[in-house]
Simulated assay, not measured.
Amino acid sequence: MKTALITGASSGIGKAFAEELAQRNYNLIIVARSNSLLVELKEKLESQYAIKVKVICQDLTVSGAGEIVFNQVKQDNIFVDLLINNAGFGDYGRFTDRVLQKQLDMIQLNITALVELTYLFLTEMKSQGRGEIINVGSIAGYQPLPYLSVYAATKAFVLSFSEALWAEYKTYGIKILALCPGPTESKFPEVAEFTNFPGMEDSNKNALAKAEDVVKDALSALEKSQANVVTGGIGNQIVVNLSRFFPRELIVNGVEKQFRQNQ
């Protein structure tokens, strides 16, 4: 039986990954800061499916957290067949109006922990000649986003990093995918303090993709050995391709006007 490790598994896309993979008969290692939510998910999935779920309560914004998670996995002598680096958050507002430490924590979580976990588990996958990794980025990684400047920059890193590794390691029998969803049902707007997040309006609730659909699209793309996948429909495909047809300054100015909220 294969094992998947999922960060940010307590809610949103991470929780949807856990539920879908449990249905597919994966044992799970679920990682997040909220122990109570992880235990609740563990009990639910183990009662519904003939699988084992290991809980690791860990704040990945702490320096060296990736190695802590890796060492806990190795204590049980578990080989991780599928690593899903999903944990991440954003922060809305003009850069210098926001708390610096929150920006640094974002970089630590969205980039540093992701790189650390990828390095540690990919090294094992290479030695075994098998394994899969999904790094959760965003369509925000395709262009700068005023008022979400650090977040978009971290997701641009995830996209570039993941595609490079896809090319480096495909000859070793390892699949690596950059998952780039658009606005999706999650706690992102709440954590980012982005009250006008697309889809939050009562008149536009259908603009948010369902986390379950994002997960199914991701696993389908991984099975096909794609380097990246943009989920959420034709609108997101248009967004990620705008820079092919328009000057970058024009795009970023347009985004600034769209995202400005009493700044």
Rank of each mutant, 00 (worst) to 15 (best):
G66V: 08
I134R: 04
A9G: 08
A209M: 13
D76G: 13
D81A: 06
N85Q: 09
K44R: 15
Q143K: 12
T3S: 10
I6S: 03
R244C: 12
G64V: 00
R260Y: 11
I251W: 03
A113Y: 02
V53A: 04
L145M: 14
L114E: 10
Q108P: 00
N206Q: 14
S160G: 15
I111T: 08
Q23C: 12
L242M: 13
E19G: 09
A16F: 01
A140Q: 07
E46D: 06
V214R: 10
M106D: 02
T112R: 08
L120K: 13
S149V: 09
K187T: 08
L100I: 14
Q58N: 10
A65C: 01
V115Q: 14
V215E: 02
V99S: 14
N204V: 05
S162R: 03
N35Q: 15
K175C: 11
G254P: 00
Y119A: 10
A156V: 03
E43S: 14
F194S: 01
Q261P: 06
L5C: 11
I139G: 04
A167H: 15
C180V: 01
G131W: 06
S127G: 02
N253P: 00
V229R: 04
N86T: 04
E256F: 09
P189M: 03
T3A: 04
I84S: 05
Q108L: 03
V240F: 05
V158K: 00
A65G: 02
P189Y: 00
D76W: 05
G199L: 09
G137D: 08
L165D: 06
R244A: 10
E20R: 14
F161K: 07
F89P: 05
D202M: 05
L219R: 01
N135L: 07
V39D: 14
N253H: 09
I133K: 08
I234A: 15
V53E: 04
K175I: 02
T195A: 15
N253Y: 08
Q128N: 14
T7A: 00
P146G: 02
L242I: 00
E201L: 14
Q75P: 12
R98I: 07
I251V: 01
S186A: 00
I176E: 08
A140N: 13
S225M: 08
E46V: 06
N77R: 13
T118S: 12
L148S: 09
S138V: 10
V255Q: 11
L104Q: 15
I84W: 07
R94E: 15
S11T: 13
M200N: 14
V69C: 05
V136F: 02
A192V: 04
G64A: 10
K257V: 08
A156W: 10
K187N: 14
L177E: 04
Q143D: 09
S36R: 11
K102N: 12
Q261C: 13
G12W: 06
S186T: 11
P247T: 11
A16S: 11
R248M: 09
F79P: 03
